[in-house]
Simulated scan of single mutants.
Amino acid sequence: MSQNPAPSGRGRKIVVALLVVALAAALAWVAILLMQPADGPGEDGPGTTASLGTSAPASPSATPSPTSSASDVPSAAPSLPAAEAAMVVWPDPGSTLRYAAPEEAAAGFAEELAGFTDPVYGDFMQGDSRSGELEVRAISDGAVTTVLLRQLTDGNWYAIGAMSSEIVLDSPRAGDPITSPVALSGTSRAFEGTVEVVVRSHGGAEALGTGIVTGGAGPDLGPFSGSIQWDNPGSGGGVLLLFETSAKDGSIWTAAAVPVGFAAQQ
């Protein structure tokens, strides 16, 4: 039986050529691997683009801010009809401050207008579908200030007045036009009988006038009457605020408030 003949010179050249091609292909593959980014190839294999799951985050784009909270100041607020603005004590109907919830309108009145320092709030007590009231105390067992609240036609909530267990204002009444001096009458019960009075315009940083009236100092409400001088602009409106301070530290103890108009002086 004969053995296989040795390969010819031509065959050896073909084998060498194939080896050279295979070696070149291998070197090319190694070069491709070395050109990949430091964090490795994409999920689909060498040289492919990394998937969305491993891509770097895009630059943040402008997105709408979350809806402002009730007590925030929006960039614009719809104006109220004049008849509604005249019944407001807080917030200033000419400002952009608005409240989407009655509780926040009550807190705004108590802390920003009346000046309570650390009040205790009760629950909102619904009246009809667009009104109600909320009790405020300087301390948990303190005198009661009842904030009257109403949702007006712009959909926001406003304080339209406040009543006190210690101060009952008979005159002027809510919405009355006043001139200077303004005459006040009612009943009260306060330390040394003293009830402080402030006339403020809507949006005014400073009081237009201040004074005191003297009512009861004992266990029962006693009558008061008096008049307060104030700087009357002759138009517009604001708030007549009456309050009692604490004998202990001078902080606001209770308050009453009514909206008033500013009538032209005769």
Rank of each mutant, 00 (worst) to 15 (best):
V20D: 04
V182F: 09
G237N: 07
S131E: 01
D170M: 09
A82H: 02
S59D: 14
A86K: 09
G234A: 07
P177D: 14
S69R: 13
A162C: 03
E84F: 02
V73Y: 13
R200G: 06
S171D: 07
S55V: 14
L208G: 08
P7K: 01
Y121P: 04
P66V: 11
Q3S: 13
G155V: 01
T54W: 09
D128P: 00
L240E: 01
G40M: 01
P223A: 01
T179S: 12
P219A: 15
G211S: 02
R98L: 11
G40D: 00
G175I: 07
W157Q: 02
V89I: 03
G234L: 07
Q126F: 00
E133Q: 14
A6M: 09
T67F: 11
M87L: 12
G226Y: 07
S55N: 14
D128V: 01
L134V: 00
S8C: 07
V239M: 00
P119S: 05
A105E: 01
D231A: 15
L52D: 12
L241F: 00
V88E: 07
P233S: 08
T96C: 06
S131I: 02
S227E: 13
T67M: 12
T48K: 11
P119M: 09
M125F: 08
G215S: 05
A256D: 00
S171I: 03
P81Q: 05
F109I: 05
F109C: 04
F191M: 10
